[in-house]
Design a protein around this nucleic acid. Structure first.
Length: 463
RNA sequence: GGCGGCGUGGCCGAGCGGUUAGGCAGGGGCCUGCAAAGCCCCGUACUCCGGUUCGAAUCCGGACGCCGCCUCCA
């Protein structure tokens, strides 16, 4: 049984599915107005891991994640750079997918774009106006939060305390400071869609509720995002669904924040802050491993030091892959348990790791268990028990692969010259000509290869 | 002010009443022609002060420190 923390209930509980064997999952995607940053990396990795694990366990997961391609920030950037809004959106959407690809985040099943759903949003808003759940003021159409009895449920705060603490604009025409824009009337030169209540563009909260319900239907299973979306974004989505009398997400998942080492990691200080930048200078698997080593609801420290730490840990997995000729690639391909055969010690490993991951995605303990298995496999192999060692190593690779972490011994192409040098060194060693062997080793090192001798043959790896 | 979270060995980061987390870094050893890799062993941590308990990093109370949300930020 899959269990996952539900923000609404405030506890870990069964992740029930509306349709047997099928999971419908919605993750709030990016507003494409700038390069993706490290925080985007964390939440996409977390929910990618979740999706992969659910799939591994045999669920048919429909994973919907939107692209918000119309928004104030996009408009501002377009104005500033004298280009169109759609050009800004297209540019940064490309950057988004580029980064996701490098991170190994599998493509969603559906990637709805807000601008393609405006008509449905307009209809949605018309219903609200008709039911007097929404009202029109000078700059747009607003949702009347007082019309939803349990508003504040996700936030975990009573409506009163929210109302008292919310900042109130002096000239605000809103009935309550908590009321939010469903629709913003277009100012001159701004992009606009027609609507009976006035041309304009949709508000962010309306986009996600319309697209998630539109694609996944009423009462879909799981709605996810970063913790900062809990309130007000998710609260507002929920409020609209309630007001529209649609059953909404049955389970809410929120991933924790990123600690940015206080002020250290900022653009102004020249440290990487964009995901694009990080991925350009490190092994993309390092960020995934870093994310996997902490719990998805805990805050994590992402810094050059912790990334470098993860990169070094990765070499341990790559060494295992070389030793046992393991090849588990990932990318868009999702691994299913049914497609792999676990044997002997591998069966036990898969069972314990599975139990951990089924319980609110305990990736840190699962990873610790897998690293134990790595030691175990090496240890067995050192003792000559290659059969058991292989079972363990192969299972570990499959399970890492299930989490989207590629363990691949064929990561580097070797050219003929290098192959010849390795052969020459082997010959020199066989002849006891150590100085010649060492000389060739130096030559290989100069070309970026480290030589490792073993009873199972000579191997080389990238320095 | 309201709500919530956190303080663990050199670093990252699990644990959530009693047993080795794990990784990285460091030290010692084995293996190796020498290396590399691997294996074995080691540091013996839990912000502080009380309390509950046979027993607490884990539960309760308090103090101090840090952080998040309450603003269309993942």
């Amino acid at each position: 049984m899959l269990r996952l923390y539900d923000t609404l209930r405030g506890e870990v509980c069964e992740l029930a599915t509306r349709d047997p064997g099928r999971l419908s999952m919605y993750v709030c995607g990016p507003t494409v107005y700038d390069l993706p940053h490290l925080g985007h990396g964390r939440f996409t990795l977390v929910w990618d891991v979740a999706r992969r694990w659910f799939t591994f366990r045999g669920l048919d997961v429909r994973f919907v994640s939107n692209i918000t391609d119309i928004d104030d920030k996009i408009i501002n950037r377009a104005l500033r750079e004298h280009v169109t809004e759609s050009e800004v959106a297209a540019t940064y959407e490309d950057q988004w997918w580029e980064a996701m690809g490098r991170l190994g985040v599998a493509r969603p099943s559906d990637t709805p774009h807000a601008t393609h759903y405006v008509e449905q949003m307009v209809t949605f808003i018309e219903h609200f106006l008709r039911d007097d759940v929404a009202y029109v003021i000078s700059d747009g159409v607003y949702f009347d939060t007082s019309r939803v009895a349990d508003y504040g449920l996700l936030a975990g705060q009573p409506l009163d305390s929210l109302r008292v603490s919310a900042r109130i604009e002096a000239s605000d025409e809103k009935r309550s400071p908590l009321d939010f824009a469903l629709w913003k009337f277009a100012k001159p030169l701004e992009p606009a869609w027609p609507a009976a209540f006035g041309a304009g563009r949709p508000g962010w909260h309306t986009e996600c509720v319309v697209m998630s319900l539109g694609l996944l239907g009423d009462g879909f299973d799981l709605h996810c995002g970063g913790l900062d979306l809990k309130f007000p974004h998710h609260e507002n989505e929920r409020a609209q669904a309630q007001a529209a009398r649609h059953a909404f997400a049955q389970h809410w998942g929120h991933s924790g924040f990123l600690l940015v080492d206080n002020e250290k990691m900022s653009k102004s200080l020249g440290n990487f802050t964009s995901l694009t930048d990080l991925l350009a200078r490190t092994d993309p698997r390092a960020y995934r491993l870093l994310v996997l080593r902490s719990h998805y609801r805990s805050p994590i420290e992402v810094s050059p030091a912790t990334i470098a730490d993860a990169e070094r840990a990765l070499t341990r997995l790559d060494t295992l892959a070389r030793r046992f000729d393991l090849v588990i690639s990932t990318g868009d391909s999702l691994v299913r348990a049914a497609d792999h055969l676990f044997e002997g010690r591998g069966v036990d490993l898969a069972a314990s790791v599975g139990e951990l991951l089924d319980d609110d995605l305990n990736t840190p303990l699962a990873v610790a268990t897998l690293f134990d298995a790595v030691s175990g496999a090496n240890s067995l192999a050192d003792q000559g028990e290659m059969h058991g060692a292989r079972q363990l190593a192969a299972a570990a690779a499959v399970l890492f692969g299930a989490l989207g972490l590629a363990v691949d011994s064929s990561a580097h192409a070797v050219d003929d010259e290098v192959t010849d040098l390795v052969a020459a060194r082997d010959a020199a060693r066989a002849a006891g000509n150590w100085s010649e062997a060492d000389h060739v080793r130096e030559e290989l090192l100069a070309r970026g290869w480290i030589v490792e001798d073993s009873t199972e043959g000579t191997r080389i790896r990238r320095a």
